[in-house]
Design a protein around this nucleic acid. Sequence first.
DNA 1: AGGGGCCGTGCCACAATGTGGAACGTTGTG
DNA 2: CACAACGTTCCACATTGTGGCACGGCCCCT
Lengths: 250, 250
Amino acid sequence: MEMKSVTRSLRILEAVAQHQPVTVGELTKLFGLPKSTVQRTLVTLAEAGWLRANRRDTTRWEIGARVLAVRPAALQGSSLFAAAREPMVRLRDEVNETIHLSVPDALQCMVVVDRVDCDHAVRTFHAIGDTSPLHATAAGRSVLAHLPKRDIEELIARGLERYSDTTPTDPDELRAELGRIRTDGYAVNLNQYRPGVCAIAAPVLDEDGTPLATVAVSMPDSRFDVNRLPDWGRIVADTAAEVTGRRLNA
Amino acid sequence: MEMKSVTRSLRILEAVAQHQPVTVGELTKLFGLPKSTVQRTLVTLAEAGWLRANRRDTTRWEIGARVLAVRPAALQGSSLFAAAREPMVRLRDEVNETIHLSVPDALQCMVVVDRVDCDHAVRTFHAIGDTSPLHATAAGRSVLAHLPKRDIEELIARGLERYSDTTPTDPDELRAELGRIRTDGYAVNLNQYRPGVCAIAAPVLDEDGTPLATVAVSMPDSRFDVNRLPDWGRIVADTAAEVTGRRLNA
DNA sequence: AGGGGCCGTGCCACAATGTGGAACGTTGTG
DNA sequence: CACAACGTTCCACATTGTGGCACGGCCCCT
């Protein structure tokens, strides 16, 4: 409820990230703020090293490399990244579908932090930084299944939003599905969030069993083959388990 | 020179990143600021999604996943990351030394953005987000060599700081070395920045020849073998060229 | 049980700080 | 050549953030 200038500066920073390289004028239109206010904010952010002028067109602003030093603890020192890298590539080679690495943001959502592409002409696309709800995706549920019961109930109490006609919005249905995920070791999503997108996901766990991240294979539903599911489920779970192991030995 | 609260908030954000998970008290000691000021700042940053309370110890603060959506344009959509991944792993397999991917931050410094580890017990270590000067490292010079002459002269005019007794601090010496890098296709660093660390680096270029990033092999000087240099130089240059190519076709 | 840290939170008078309208300089376009 | 569009600078005003203080809760130590 306070620090208006700080809140606004961060909004502007995010807008620059989305539209970079961007001019002062474009941002003033976007926010409906006075030109001088936007300008002052940009200069301040740049002096702090978070923004910089584009090298070719110095009237355009872009994100500075400083932000790379600021990362969630799970990714600090890149142990998760580094550990996940090679298993993800091998998984992609095996199934030839896009692989995503995502981390949970509190109990809010999953955030995509890394990706290995497949070479199909038709493929799913999620940019680094994209978010998705915990209950409606394979990635989210694979994490959710391994959280303490009170966290699961808290999320259910907040309400299960519907994104498609197969989104699990019934608490009991979701609880049952989470149980299945715990026994099978992987989660599945068939068109439950974004139409046409299917995925299989398994969690990367911390020393104490807390889910840190998830490895997911995602594909257009046209290529999803239910007969391969047990096989692929096992492969994904093995990959996630390998990442868990490599991270702990790093 | 303005927006004190914004500048301070960003400093606090960076401090949280370095010390996470961290308490209000630790930050007040670190900055010598009043508790209420730090507290208010943390709450504001958290409301904006940039910070969050640690799940286990809710009095400790850590970085939220929101920051992952804010990245330099070169990394946006992860095209550089994704393109570099596999070539870096292959390079590591070939030389069994640590591989770094770094990007230039304006004309200020290089920032490490990705890493593939080797399996030697003794190895060099640079965390993601670490920075290094442009003139004193292989990574920096490999980028510098491909910048416009006026940028090179601007950097020289700012002064070439000495970090070890082999750091190139003489402008002519540096200019000559940059010429050699352009003809050879790779840069070399023997103890010129951090004592005991050697590296070989080659740049990843944009469509128009602008250096976007650099791929570097780094190793303890005890394992640096000058006889292998031409070979390894070529391999590193080939790897960087492959990343350049993959990125443009992605 | 009791006490001492240390945490998060709330309050409020003060003035430093950020605000935004308006004017200036520059670029490029008809 | 003049006009338009844009980035940049300036400054008086009052909104905004400040920081000292105090309260209540929690945990650890004695």
